[in-house]
Simulated assay, not measured.
Amino acid sequence: MTVDQMTDLIVARLLRDRGGQKHKWRKSLGPVRLYDRATHPHCNWALNPVGTAVEVEAIEQLADELRLAHPILTHPR
């Protein structure tokens, strides 16, 4: 899965589960950071969400869930 696909998946799930506006969730999500697999072999991505405490918690909980299914992301080609 690519970074762009993960971003789209997270936003879609947040919209479905929490409602709100797509633009607002994308802004709160921020960029997906990738790390080198040599130093992060089990999970190579992270988020640094911003927003209200409720928004940040929703994003972090979803990210934790999705890391189990998609621990390794790639750059889009």
Rank of each mutant, 00 (worst) to 15 (best):
H40V: 00
V50F: 10
A46W: 02
L34C: 02
M1L: 10
I72N: 07
Q21A: 15
T74Q: 08
I10L: 12
A12V: 11
V54W: 10
Q21D: 14
V11A: 07
E65H: 12
W25V: 05
L34G: 06
A38G: 08
H70M: 14
Q5G: 02
C43T: 08
H40E: 10
I59H: 00
D4R: 14
V50H: 15
E57Q: 15
H75V: 11
R67H: 08
W45G: 05
H23F: 12
G19E: 04
P49D: 08
G51P: 04
R37M: 13
K24S: 07
D4C: 02
E57I: 00
T7N: 12
K24M: 02
G30V: 02
M6F: 02
A69F: 06
W25R: 01
R67W: 08
P76V: 05
E57N: 13
L14T: 04
M1Y: 06
P31Q: 11
Q61I: 07
P76N: 09
L66K: 07
R77Q: 08
N48H: 14
T52N: 03
A69K: 12
W45E: 03
G19R: 02
K22D: 09
E65L: 14
K24I: 07
L9R: 03
R67I: 09
L15K: 05
D17C: 08
I72A: 01
K27W: 11
S28Y: 05
R13N: 13
T74S: 10
L68W: 13
I72K: 01
R18M: 00
G20R: 01
H42R: 13
L14Q: 07
